[in-house]
Simulated assay, not measured.
Amino acid sequence: MPSIYDFTVQDNQGQPIELSQYRDKVLLIVNTASKCGFTPQYKELEALYQQYHTQGLVILAFPCNQFGGQEPAGNSEIQQFCEINFGLSFPLMAKLNVNGPDTAPLFDYLKEHARGLLKSRAIKWNFTKFLVNKEGMVVKRYAPRTKPASIAPAIEELL
Rank of each mutant, 00 (worst) to 15 (best):
Glu112Ile: 10
Gln70Thr: 11
Glu18Thr: 12
Glu157Gln: 15
Ser150Tyr: 07
Ser20Asn: 12
Gly69Met: 05
Leu19Ser: 05
Gly116Asp: 04
Leu159Asn: 03
Ser76Cys: 06
Phe38Arg: 02
Asp6Arg: 04
Ile123Pro: 00
Glu44Gly: 02
Val139Cys: 09
Tyr49His: 06
Tyr42Met: 05
Ile4Glu: 06
Asn31Thr: 06
Met93His: 03
Ser3Arg: 08
Lys124Gln: 11
Pro63Glu: 09
Glu83Lys: 15
Gly87His: 10
Leu117Glu: 11
Cys82Tyr: 09
Glu156Arg: 14
Leu118Met: 13
Met93Ile: 05
Glu83Asp: 12
Pro63Arg: 09
Asn12Met: 08
Thr54Cys: 00
Glu135Gly: 08
Tyr22Arg: 03
Cys82His: 09
Met93Trp: 01
Gly74Phe: 12
Ile155Asp: 04
Glu77Asp: 15
Gln41Thr: 03
Ile123His: 00
Leu110Ser: 04
Pro40Lys: 10
Gln50Gly: 07
Leu57Phe: 05
Lys140His: 14
Gln80Arg: 14
Thr54Gln: 08
Ala33Tyr: 01
Ala154Asp: 15
Gly37Phe: 03
Val98Met: 14
Lys134Arg: 15
Leu28Lys: 00
Ala104Val: 12
Leu92Ser: 12
Lys111Phe: 06
Ile4Pro: 04
Ala61His: 04
Gly68Phe: 10
Asn75Pro: 14
Asn31Ser: 10
Val132Ser: 07
Leu48Pro: 00
Arg141Lys: 09
Pro101Ile: 13
Ala33Thr: 06
Ile59Asn: 00
Phe38Met: 11
Phe86His: 14
Asn97Gly: 14
Tyr42Trp: 04
Ile123Val: 14
Asp11Pro: 01
Leu110Trp: 02
Leu60Trp: 03
His53Asp: 05
Phe67Pro: 00
Trp125Asp: 04
Asn99Trp: 10
Leu28Arg: 01
Pro63His: 07
Glu71Ile: 08
Ala73Leu: 15
Leu19Lys: 03
Asn75Tyr: 12
Arg141Pro: 01
Ala152His: 10
Leu19Glu: 03
Leu48Ser: 02
Asn85Glu: 13
Ala152Asp: 10
Lys95Cys: 11
Ile84Cys: 05
Val58Tyr: 02
Lys147Val: 14
Ala33Val: 09
Pro2Tyr: 03
Ile123Cys: 05
Arg141Thr: 08
Ile59Val: 14
Lys147Asn: 15
